[in-house]
Design a protein around this nucleic acid. Sequence first.
DNA 1: TGAACTTCTGTAAACGTTTACGGGAGATGG
DNA 2: CCATCTCCCGTAAACGTTTACAGAAGTTCA
Lengths: 349, 349
Amino acid sequence: MAQRSSPTITTIAEAAGVSIASVSRVLNGLPVRAETERRVLDAAGRLGYVPNSAARTLRSARTQQIAFAVADIGNPVYLAMLREIQPVLKEAGYRLVLHSTGADTAEEVEVLRGLGQRYADGLIIVPIRVTADHVAELRRADAPVVVIGSLPEEGLADNVRTDSRRGVELALEHLTALGRRRIGFVNGPADTVPGRARAEAFRDHTARAGRPADPALVHEGQFDRETGAAAVQRMADAAEPMPDALLCANDLIALGALDALRARGLAVPGDVAVVGMDDTDLAAVSWPPLTSVSLGSAERGRRAARLLLDRLDGGADAADARVITVHPRLIVRASTGGARVVDDGSAAH
Amino acid sequence: MAQRSSPTITTIAEAAGVSIASVSRVLNGLPVRAETERRVLDAAGRLGYVPNSAARTLRSARTQQIAFAVADIGNPVYLAMLREIQPVLKEAGYRLVLHSTGADTAEEVEVLRGLGQRYADGLIIVPIRVTADHVAELRRADAPVVVIGSLPEEGLADNVRTDSRRGVELALEHLTALGRRRIGFVNGPADTVPGRARAEAFRDHTARAGRPADPALVHEGQFDRETGAAAVQRMADAAEPMPDALLCANDLIALGALDALRARGLAVPGDVAVVGMDDTDLAAVSWPPLTSVSLGSAERGRRAARLLLDRLDGGADAADARVITVHPRLIVRASTGGARVVDDGSAAH
DNA sequence: TGAACTTCTGTAAACGTTTACGGGAGATGG
DNA sequence: CCATCTCCCGTAAACGTTTACAGAAGTTCA
């Protein structure tokens, strides 16, 4: 363990009998005499030289790191994004710095501000809410930022979004086509980006269908299993009849609902059809397998990574922020009936 | 976007009318005159100063980053570790650099070697195999390393392991106690660290019980669902009777087995009891809920993080590598019968 | 009053790279 | 044979910090 301090470019230069400039040139593939190259590579190999990234960064202002910030990396949606982002970045020679901020909005803003430390060349962030502070920090950001999720203003940052309204519609159309008429809706917090979008879409769609949402059929909680169970509990205990279908704002909620329905002896999809959202791995594993609206998490992750790399390569024209929209698809499984894929009709790219 | 270059310590010094040394002192909480402190903080606030981490690192040789390397961050086991590691590191003021190496052993070694770049103050790694190259790199590592999983030699590195042999025993004892006699075993690759341990434990235990493992009852594949399904397929198609219990080397395999059993009309646990390993989130979600051997992934992650932080604080006595063993527990769910927890009898801490 | 301390501050070096600049040596051409 | 051009290479500066060292100013005490 008593390692003698590791070799620097100076050590190599001495060992090879050349100047540090030559060493640097060889190491960076700049043109040098063959003999010089040989000597340097030889010395470097012999001494086990590895370049110091801090020095490199300080001089060149490139960290070869990209940060990815989400509320909770345990959430399968964010995990799906990460799984796509990681290989893309690695391929391009970047390390991945992961921030799991928790539900705390202030921490997200802190991550944005942290870019000022210049520990990363860029950031991909999935904000749970977008506050005025977010907007302010996005404007002054010290490095390119790609936001996954909707933004309140145009031109703030490169942006990969999904049409979650359309996702809700896909689910509702599917349930309606199956003959379900009393459709319940279990949402997460309505003051979050995804929560609000889903709530509005549900309201609009039911209104448009001439059946304004019965408040007894709408439940708001968190994006977790307990909320799904609690919603079923409440609806089953109510005076009104049980809904014949439940649209859940994510798969976790849907799984909680499945459990509670089973506990009450209600058949799925016989008595109640259940639809989740996000189409996480859990959907395929649950019993019955869960029909779910895919919001293209993996694709959004991949697109975001590419967008950022593009920006870093200077490929993007300066000022104008780019927006990519990923289209939702409905993955039909046993929790509503048959098994087929219904997409939204528009091209997926 | 056309940001003027961000303020440095020099900018602040000029604005505050003091020297850069004083600025640095204020920023690092060293003693200065109150008036000086006021001026510096004022200027820093006004100009939005943020310290540059590369410069800081170059000078102080501390990156405030810790790397975590696993084969596949999509694997729930590694994810469970990450979820515990992340907050511990954040709390201590470290960023987390994530490496997902893929099944490739060479890439793991590359990560170890990469420490020479000094982009991280330490590394937590979960090797899928431990080769001679691993050992060599561990010896010469440029920063403290904590290995999660068993090591072939003592004293190589701080090490958090689990007693997976004991885990296999817990499962087998449980099944035996339930009256199961023909117990099948579905493993992942036997040349991996976890695969080998499980295989040996199964062999030893059945031998000790006087019922040496029937090769027809042992299946080796990958650590995935397909392998579970394939194993059931093969055993059901064989001339011999179907086993009355299946021990699967991880939860994914078990889920695949559950699917295949259901497809063949075999009841779980009626006809076949199924046990998984790792006790991931999936175990609780599946149907029927899966009895699983918890190998304490979360705890191993947490312990590893603390061990590393300890080492970085110089709290650890130089040379001697420390070993922590986390004890397995059996989480009984419906896939084998009742619902209770059986642990291995020794203290969990 | 001046020596000896304290307390605070500034100057400058150092961390390990990359790169602008200029010089030396050999080749080419008039 | 000297001017010019090319090709390599070395010197030195710069990136933005932290910190050793020493000096300035004020305090204490004989």
